[in-house]
Computed example of a mutant assay.
Amino acid sequence: MNSITLFPGRYIQGKGVLHDLGAECARLGSKAFLIASPYSLKHYARTILENAPEGLVIVQEQFNRECSDEEIQRLHELCAKNQCNLVVGLGGGKTLDAAKAAAHKAGVPVIMAPTIASTDAPCSSVCVIYTPEGVFSWVDYLPRNPDVVLVDTSIIVKAPARFLASGMGDALATWFEAESCRIKRAPNIAGAVGSMTAYALARLCWETIRDYGVSALSACEANVVTPALERVVEANTLLSGIGFESAGLAAAHAIHNGLTVVPGINRFYHGEKVAFGVLVSLFLTEKPPSLIDEIYGFCESIGLPTTLADLGMENASDQLLLDVAEKACTPEDSMHNEPFDISPAKIADMIKAADAWGLKRKNG
């Protein structure tokens, strides 16, 4: 099987780089359709407009909070009505996904400008689609990655530090899932095996957050940009983005998907649920106790969940855990990229094992 590696067209990161967004727009088009979250439209659109080069027209539109088929169609129609030849997404993950999908429908380039570093969505071709009420609907795999990803770290540090920690939870899964896919030669998002580059970047992603995660979180809490913060933002966004798409997904994200059946779980961020999925996967993949303790220690150090209670599931019944496991083991999910025999009963047991290890550490 051939390998395929997926990349964004250009990745730009640094303090104050939002000032360069206009120049990037002018490189790709002459009339940009800016889709922005309400907060981003109020606080950051002016910076883009004030630094836009002469001749560039920017049409602004507020994102309506849910990346639904209806919202994507609305944005696409507005983009076409205004005869824009470029789309820019400014905000969090749902805003960016909607911008990607609208640009694809319009057949124009797209620039991603994330305002938080909580997931690896900005670099990917994947769009998660919800109903207008916010219930998960389906996943759209677009034929191309964003043309530009521009990450202004002076904006990232203004967001609550919990977003950065959640991004590290999502990034934490990258190497562990990539390693399972490498061993099994399971397919990546493109349907091919991962490349040497993809697996190496996935490993670098883990090493970066391991070495710099605590320092980066401290910097974010102080609203300052440091070299550690820059490294972790790059790991959360670029390394994890390339890693998950090009090396593959496995148990951690499947556990996340399984957890969506739990009432009230939506108050926890994507990366927080993925992080607990990583802990479950450590037992499924028979990792040595020394590595298990290292990963639990890392999660504890940046405030990621290590027990069911941390996810509000301290009273979870055996049946609820089995429901989670059954959802995680659906035929189309990435759980089957693990190089081990899989069954809902086995996954439910691994969830209990992960919870027990976390409780043991908490109780000394």
Rank of each mutant, 00 (worst) to 15 (best):
T95M: 05
L322N: 06
I155W: 01
S118M: 01
V17L: 06
L201M: 13
E54A: 15
E77C: 01
F244L: 13
D147H: 14
D140E: 12
L284K: 03
V262I: 13
M196A: 09
K327N: 07
E326Y: 00
A186W: 06
A275Q: 06
V225L: 11
E294H: 05
K100S: 09
L21R: 03
M313Q: 03
E70C: 01
V278L: 09
P289V: 07
M168T: 04
G93T: 15
E207Q: 15
R203Y: 11
V274R: 02
P122S: 01
G9F: 14
M313A: 03
A309Y: 01
T47I: 10
K100Y: 04
Y130W: 12
A228H: 15
P227C: 10
R231D: 11
V126N: 08
K287T: 00
N337W: 05
E50S: 14
C67E: 03
K158D: 13
S118E: 05
E245D: 13
C123Y: 02
R210H: 10
G92K: 05
D349N: 14
M335R: 05
A32S: 14
A354P: 06
P132H: 11
R182L: 15
F7D: 06
Y199T: 08
P38F: 08
I111C: 02
Y39S: 15
Q83F: 03
V108I: 13
N2V: 10
S218I: 02
N257F: 00
I58Y: 10
G243Q: 12
L320W: 03
I111N: 02
G29V: 14
V128A: 11
V278R: 10
D211G: 09
A222Q: 15
A252Q: 12
C181N: 14
A353R: 15
A121T: 07
T95K: 07
P146I: 00
M168Y: 04
Q13I: 14
F244S: 12
G194D: 03
T208Y: 09
M196Y: 06
L164K: 06
S40R: 06
L34A: 13
A328D: 01
P344Y: 05
N257H: 09
Q319W: 00
A325K: 08
N266C: 05
I116R: 00
G297C: 10
S301M: 05
P38N: 07
E245W: 06
L279N: 08
K81M: 08
P160E: 01
